[in-house]
Amino acid sequence: MSAFARGFRLSTELVAGVVVGALIGWLLDRWLGISPWGLIVFLLFGFTAGVLNVMRAAGIVRDRQL
């Protein structure tokens, strides 16, 4: 895999985690009327998931070993 493809892979992994967290948080806010707490909490979780994705993709963390 070229360096360009690798870099692109890592950045999308991070962004995807954050986007999923933000989306779930925003939807919970709308459904439960708990704005802005859903967004705050889930954005943080999403960021964590994104970092986990990146570490997996980069091979720093072996898959399924956290």
């Binding site: 992994e13 962004v15 994104g50």
Partner: peptide
């Protein structure tokens, strides 16, 4: 907490998978 993050990470897969190809 870990399980929760793992689930989020799993859900984010199709997003990174599709955005990568599309954006490139």
């Amino acid at each position: 907490l870990i399980v929760f993050i793992e689930i989020l990470s799993f859900i984010s897969r199709p997003i990174s998978h599709s955005v990568r190809l599309f954006a490139n």
